[in-house]
């Protein structure tokens, strides 16, 4: 859970950085997209192959992450078959309570996201085969799409707010009350950074800064 989670967070950070290339214009963005698909690690491995290795790797991380979550959830339910009549909490954060349902929502929207931008099975405002830049600009000129995207990124960041700290705690980094504060603060930084970073481009498109 922790390792796959951190892999996914790492991916998101890079992905976010890549998205910001949109601010450098269509050429830079499209070139970056093209490079990702074909030229990474070339000539060490043949053109266009890395992306498939990478996709397989990400898929494995996601599957393992979901599998572990499924297993934990099942165990938790089995561990308390009779529910409390009255139950309160002291410590539990909104983020930690949202981990399971949040995970389901974000996974569903991930499918939608991939269907749109990777497979292009669903396409609003752009034609299949459109370039990366054209695709996102067309997409995010629609307000509902930006809103949906914001909700999704929000859910992702809430998930990461607890997930980031929790992953490090699971890996043994929560060595003291101080360490716990630091990890939780870092988790906030990462979550906010990802939200701002991912939302900057769509908002800019909507506002007409990026055309």
């Amino acid at each position: 859970m922790a390792i796959t989670g951190l892999i996914l967070i790492g991916f998101l950070l890079i992905h976010m950085y890549g998205n910001l290339k949109a601010f450098s214009g269509a050429d830079a963005y499209n070139h970056y997209a093209e490079w990702l698909k074909t030229e990474v690690l070339y000539p060490l491995i043949p053109k266009g192959q890395f992306i498939w290795i990478f996709r397989a790797f990400m898929l494995a991380a996601i599957v393992l992450h979901i599998g572990a979550a499924w297993h934990l959830t099942k165990r938790a339910h089995a561990a308390r078959s009779t529910k409390y009549v009255a139950k309160k909490t002291i410590q539990q954060t909104y983020e930690s309570r949202m981990m399971r349902w949040g995970g389901v929502i974000l996974a569903a929207l991930l499918v939608f996201h991939l269907a749109q931008f990777t497979v292009q099975a669903i396409h609003f405002g752009f034609k299949p085969g459109a370039g990366a830049y054209e695709m996102v600009v067309a997409e995010f000129q629609m307000f509902p799409m930006v809103l949906l995207y914001a909700v999704w990124v929000g859910v992702v960041c809430i998930h990461i707010r607890h997930g980031f700290w929790s992953a490090f705690a699971t890996l043994g980094a929560n060595t003291s009350a101080k360490a716990r504060e630091v990890l939780n603060a870092l988790a906030w930084v990462v979550a906010v950074l990802l939200f701002v970073g991912f939302m900057a481009m769509p908002v800019a498109v909507l506002a007409g800064v990026i055309k």
Partner: peptide, 25 residues
């Protein structure tokens, strides 16, 4: 048959002996 830990911290918050959460780490 106990469940797994997801680092929520509810345990340490009610512990009468204030065992800190970092022991789990």
């Amino acid at each position: 048959g106990f469940g797994g830990c997801t680092n929520i911290g509810e345990c340490a918050a009610v512990c009468p002996k204030q065992i800190p959460l970092d022991v789990i780490s």
